[in-house]
């Protein structure tokens, strides 16, 4: 069986199509599937941002005061890291379509995963500082205004959910690297590369919305 043939799964292998056609159809079906899933995720994070908007309108002052307590250095650094990972992810996605670019694909995938891990490390440092500054909602909370606790409730929840998504992304990219190293032909044109990296791009985009909401809201104007 050819390299392409090995990658065709049920039920795409039984459509009575030629191997290359079945492979292309499977690929576009799989990509379509991940777009539908991303639409679902948009509603998930959409609800989270709706929550933010509603709470911020109700408690504008407390939100501004609370948002000034976040660490903009860590936040900005993380934004830069994640956007760079978006670049390497896109390069990997394109490079994977070409036979001769296997090494570039693997390096870009590795860089993507490494940048993702770096993001989590910086986030961890930031969390430690937040805990030391008593920014965890509860009786020992640092700020006097009660609604400021809502902001930090949102902060912990949204960054936590985002970090879970990112960790899943790192796992997916790590899996691509592992499979790609073992089997030389596995990466070429494989829909799984594009799927994992589309998901990665989505997680990036969520952060682009979280960054101003969490770090810039209190500092603008």
């Amino acid at each position: 069986m050819s390299a392409v043939g090995k990658l065709i799964r049920e039920p795409w292998d039984e459509l009575g199509l030629s191997e290359s056609k079945a492979f292309a159809l499977q690929r576009s079906g799989a990509t379509f599937g991940i777009w539908v899933f991303i639409a679902s995720e948009v509603l998930f994070f959409g609800a989270i941002f709706l929550l933010y908007a509603a709470m911020r309108i109700e408690h504008a002052d407390a939100f501004a005061a609370a948002a000034r307590e976040t660490n903009i250095v860590y936040g900005t650094l993380n934004t830069a890291i994640l956007l760079t990972s978006g670049l390497t992810a896109s390069v990997a996605s394109r490079a994977a379509e070409h036979d001769g670019l296997r090494r570039l694909t693997l390096w870009c995938l590795a860089a993507t995963a490494a940048l993702g891990l770096a993001f989590l490390v910086v986030k961890g440092l930031e969390y430690r500082e937040d805990i030391e500054k008593h920014l965890v909602p509860g009786p020992r909370f640092a700020l006097a205004q009660a609604p400021a606790q809502l902001f930090f409730g949102f902060y912990w929840l949204s960054t936590g959910v985002h970090a879970i998504h990112l960790s899943i992304g790192i796992g997916l990219v790590g899996r691509l690297i592992g499979k790609g190293l073992r089997d030389h032909e596995w990466l070429v044109g494989n829909a799984q590369v594009e799927i994992a990296l589309l998901y990665w791009g989505f997680v990036d985009v969520v952060w682009i919305f979280l960054y101003p909401a969490l770090y810039l809201a209190g500092r603008a104007g």
Binding site: M55, H59, P137, A146, L150, G153, W156
Partner: peptide, 11 residues
């Protein structure tokens, strides 16, 4: 994590 807690301004 307070989100809906009325005591802290939640809705």
């Amino acid at each position: 994590l307070p989100i809906f807690d009325p005591a802290r301004g939640g809705d």
